[in-house]
Nucleic acid binder design. Structure first.
Length: 266
DNA sequence: AACGAGGACAACCGCAGTCTT
DNA sequence: GAAGACTGCGGTTGTCCTCGT
């Protein structure tokens, strides 16, 4: 774990605190990750979108398993690595609850070593069966396909809003992930109202346009039941923006508003 | 008890692919 | 079609932990 520090752009790097985890988790479970770049601003985090995405995908996402790989998982990873090579995301797609990063780490610390030993033994004791050229080509082609399909299928319960509905079909964790899948919400629509009313003076115009376009694209039926199980408490619960970061330094546009709860129920 | 080596894993970085303008 | 933005992937690094000496 890396020690937390602030980089030259004023963004926090290194280990995540519990508070940051909570903010990110709460935000995504409510609103989904409709745009990683803008998400930290909305969630009240002084992190880059990339860092948020990584934290969510590898650590906070529901259903993630860590540590204690079973024998079956170990064998499957070894087998898939033989077939697919270092296609960690494709391998992860076949292991529900495991992340590509986790599998990659596991490979480097356990299986790589084991494979080396096996390879050494097999060259010593018996001639190694060489890969059939044609088959390996096919396997590689298959790997590419798998990779594409796994992305589409979001088998590891990716919560990407845009494609979630079609993509989740057939995925192992579909039902679980679907609970959290989100269309852009009234919150975001409200955010546009707020920004408009403020003349978006403190808001980067490109960000604004991006958000607005995204909402226009996907606004369809978001009012019907945007939150599944969340809606009862959500609509009555104020969403307070966190202002603990960058207070007074002018770097955060939250400073100017303090909170948005009054606008949420527009 | 102190120390070093290696393991474990979270997190960062750079790049490539895809999407949008 | 070009350029820029965004997203996801794979490689690598940093730091804490565990274990052996």
């Amino acid at each position: 774990m890396r020690a937390p520090y602030i980089d030259k752009n004023g963004l926090k790097k290194g280990a995540w605190s519990e508070e940051e985890d909570k903010k990110l988790r709460d935000y995504i479970l409510r609103y989904g990750h409709w745009n990683w770049k803008l998400l930290p601003k909305f969630a009240g985090l002084k992190r880059c979108g990339k860092s948020c995405r990584l934290r969510w995908m590898n650590y906070l996402r529901p259903g993630i398993k860590r540590g204690n790989y079973t024998k079956q998982e170990e064998e499957l990873i070894a087998k898939l690595h033989d077939e697919l090579g270092n296609k960690w995301s494709a391998i992860a797609a076949k292991l529900p609850g495991r992340t590509d990063n986790g599998i990659k780490n596991f490979w480097h610390t356990h299986l790589k070593k084991r494979n080396k030993t096996n390879a050494a033994n097999s060259t010593q004791n018996s001639p190694r069966i060489t890969y059939n050229c044609k088959n390996s080509q096919e396997a590689l082609a298959g790997a590419d396909l798998n990779c594409k399909n796994s992305q589409e299928a979001l088998a590891s319960s990716d919560l990407n809003c845009k494609n979630s509905q079609e993509a989740l079909a057939g995925a192992d964790l579909a039902s679980e992930a679907q609970k959290f899948s989100r269309k852009p919400t009234t919150f975001q629509v409200s955010a546009v109202h707020i920004l408009e009313s403020l003349g978006s003076s403190s808001w980067d115009s490109k960000d604004f346009k991006l958000l607005q376009d995204r909402i226009n694209d996907e606004r369809v039926s978001t009012y019907a039941d945007p939150f599944g199980g969340f809606q009862e408490c959500f609509w009555t619960q104020p969403f307070l923006l966190d202002t603990s970061y960058g207070q007074g330094d002018g770097s955060s546009w939250f400073d100017e508003w303090g909170f948005l709860s009054g606008y949420l129920l527009i």
